Simulated scan of single mutants.
Amino acid sequence: MPHIHWEDPFCGDSSNCFRLGTDSAGNAYIAVSGAEDHYITDTRDALRALIRDIKAGKADHLL
């Protein structure tokens, strides 16, 4: 498991919270808050686009 620096949790209007993280190699990670050992990883740009869509209400059903 890589060493991941997790940011503070982001919680939307509902009870779903998630966290973003990065490692020293520049990889980006996203996980449900409280379950950081089960994460997905992708490029920062891909995860940034996902988060923008979630915040815009386009993909909140994914959480």
Rank of each mutant, 00 (worst) to 15 (best):
M1Q: 14
P2L: 06
I4W: 09
I4M: 09
I4G: 05
I4T: 03
H5K: 14
H5S: 14
W6N: 00
W6M: 00
E7S: 08
E7P: 10
D8V: 07
D8N: 13
D13P: 02
D13H: 04
D13Y: 11
D13R: 02
D13S: 02
S14M: 01
S15D: 14
S15F: 04
S15V: 15
N16A: 13
C17T: 04
F18P: 09
R19N: 15
R19A: 15
L20K: 05
L20Q: 05
L20P: 14
T22K: 13
D23W: 04
D23A: 10
D23H: 06
A25I: 01
A25L: 03
G26T: 02
N27T: 11
I30C: 11
A31F: 09
V32Q: 06
V32G: 06
S33P: 10
G34E: 09
G34T: 06
G34Y: 03
G34H: 10
A35R: 11
E36I: 06
E36L: 11
E36W: 02
E36A: 02
D37W: 05
D37H: 12
D37M: 03
D37T: 04
D37K: 11
Y39S: 06
I40R: 04
I40C: 13
D42M: 03
D42H: 06
T43D: 13
T43R: 08
T43I: 01
R44Y: 15
R44D: 10
R44S: 15
R44I: 07
D45V: 04
D45E: 13
A46C: 04
L47I: 14
R48Y: 11
R48F: 06
A49K: 02
A49V: 09
A49Y: 10
L50A: 08
L50R: 12
I51H: 12
I51E: 12
R52S: 02
D53V: 00
I54R: 01
K55P: 01
K55V: 05
G57I: 00
G57M: 01
G57R: 03
K58C: 12
K58S: 09
H61G: 04
H61Y: 12
L62C: 15
L62R: 13
L63D: 05
